[in-house]
Design a protein around this nucleic acid. Structure first.
Lengths: 193, 193, 193, 193
DNA sequence: CATGAATGAGCGTTCATTCAT
DNA sequence: AATGAATGAACGCTCATTCAT
């Protein structure tokens, strides 16, 4: 009785195709990617795109939300590992590596900054989940004495929003190497590179 | 050889007016500032603008080059002060503060990254001057033992290209605070904020 | 011959719901009312709407035909009253008042003009019924000496097609006041307004 | 010193071509005529059209204003002739004939109704001129005893706004024949048609 | 040389209509 | 039959660029 009808299959498939295409096109050409191009890349007509997302803003927001979901899930998994005994600083470092790495293929990351930076009260569930998990990670690192006591979630926001999305893997890795000591209580060793 | 005409004066004046207007408009509205708006702000017609710069890309490049001139001069002055006995790390820190601060008022700065990051051989004079001065600053800091030995000019490039231009002064200052320890041999103290 | 199926009931009900919704939406938003909106208002899917009416033009025509049915019935009732002894000019005047008044609530009315104005031979039954009844009314008025002898059914068409549908009640009443003397043999008195 | 430069010639020509094309296209297809079609009909690119008129509303308004200018000039000429001794009712009749006749080639007429009907205080000059001239004509006719004493300029508005623009010349003439007795103190004679 | 009018591809969006389910 | 997702031409409008004056 309560089931959604079968014909949804196509629509669901199309929605996914559209989101995939939008993510890819936005990554390739920035948010100025044209709706027509996204539609073509998705293999649908523009109208279909607009049936799923009433306007471009909403489509971009959906891409961001989807990304944020992944970030939140990733952060939550890291929190779980820390709770299970993993080293907090290690988990934070790897989490950041994954986020920055993902940013290479997804320009949308920078935009994640905005929802994270804003007042979380009336925000997306994913935003709150991510914020909660990140706060837990930071606190665990601080309790270990590894994360600098003044580090807050806003610093993560700064990190996300300034990651070098358009640059080669080496540059992204180096960038994180340079950024991490600012978060920790330790100086960077000569062997860090 | 055969030309040394006087009327250049007007053209030079126009070129300056256009660059000033372009810098201002791009700072105010980002690179999506319209060519017409820039022309109006410069007090010339669009045609004149296109006489001086064959297309928008070139105009933006010129704005960046101009900016780079200032950066180069700033870096050279810092080198001079270090040569005169100033503390290299202090000079580097203040130089970076100025650049990041300036980035708030000039959206174009981030784009400085591109010419800097590219192969400098066929580049603007300013690019080479800035690169030379920055290299000198870095080396001086390394000789003092303050700058981490693996830091190169490419790290400056990363820093320039990822500065949080669109954010409040506090965020920019915090961002530099977080970034600096990655360049130095020292951990960040609790009192650094 | 070979069909007398029962399931027609649903289809008939749907057709009525669609016509009602179309009339209402067209009255509210003019003929630019969207097919989707009409379908939603009717509580059916667009596809169903298109099953009953192959395109928008046909749907609008059906709304008009339906309206024309009411006009025809109204005119026929007036004819019956005249046959029973009522004053023809009075009946014509009131009939016109009702039509013009109805036009306020139904933007479609003006379009009634088209079927009425066209050659009635291959037209809707309602068109012929209305034409017959109006001709009878006009003739009765002319026999009383009240309606100008050159008035024809085409004048009714002109009146229908130019009624001020989009204007306040006072304007509509005034418009009829101005129009009526053209149909009658009498000048407008000072006290007519 | 105060002269407008020569190059305006082209622009002036284009503006006229655009207005002519807009008038024609709007007459042919109503105000839903596309901007592209108007541009093509004018022999210019869309951009040129938008250079002269910032949006469709303004273009339509310009067509109406242009029309209104002609109406105002026509009415003023009629007033002048009446002042010179011409018969007011004759002038009014011929003026209305001309307006209704013009309406055949210019759907915009109906729209004239709106500015005329609205509060004239902050309106176009042409609106005021037309209103003044029409009021003078009406008053002259009333002083002759030909125009019904309760006729006001709002009745002209009703007439303009309901003229049968889309119909053949005979229909337009007949329509005016039917409408005029409502404005005058005299019944329609049998020979009027 | 400067001017600014003209160009036209492109954008985000709508909506009558078609078609797979 | 009914559904509603998909289609794609069309719309009003923008803006980097060209070219007649």
């Amino acid at each position: 009785m309560s089931q959604a009808r079968a014909p949804r299959a196509d629509a669901v498939r199309n929605r996914k195709k559209i989101l995939d295409a939008a993510r890819e096109q936005i990554s390739l050409h920035g948010p100025e990617a044209g709706m027509d191009e996204i539609a073509i890349a998705a293999g649908v007509a523009v109208g279909t795109l607009y049936r799923h997302f009433p306007n471009k803003t909403d489509l971009v927001a959906a891409v961001i939300a989807e990304y944020l979901d992944k970030v939140a899930a990733d952060a939550e998994a890291a929190v779980a590992r820390v709770a299970a005994g993993a080293h907090a600083l290690d988990e934070i470092t790897r989490f950041l590596e994954r986020v920055v790495e993902a940013s290479a293929a997804d320009h949308a990351v920078k935009a994640v900054a905005l929802p994270l930076g804003a007042d979380p009260s009336d925000k997306d569930d994913a935003v709150r989940r991510a914020a909660t998990a990140l706060a837990a990670l930071i606190q665990a690192g601080q309790e270990d004495g590894d994360i600098h006591p003044d580090v807050t979630i806003d610093d993560m926001y700064l990190l996300f929003s300034t990651a070098p999305t358009g640059q080669p893997a080496a540059a992204r890795a180096r960038w994180l190497t340079l950024f991490l000591p600012g978060l920790t209580t330790r100086a960077r060793g000569v062997t860090d590179l």
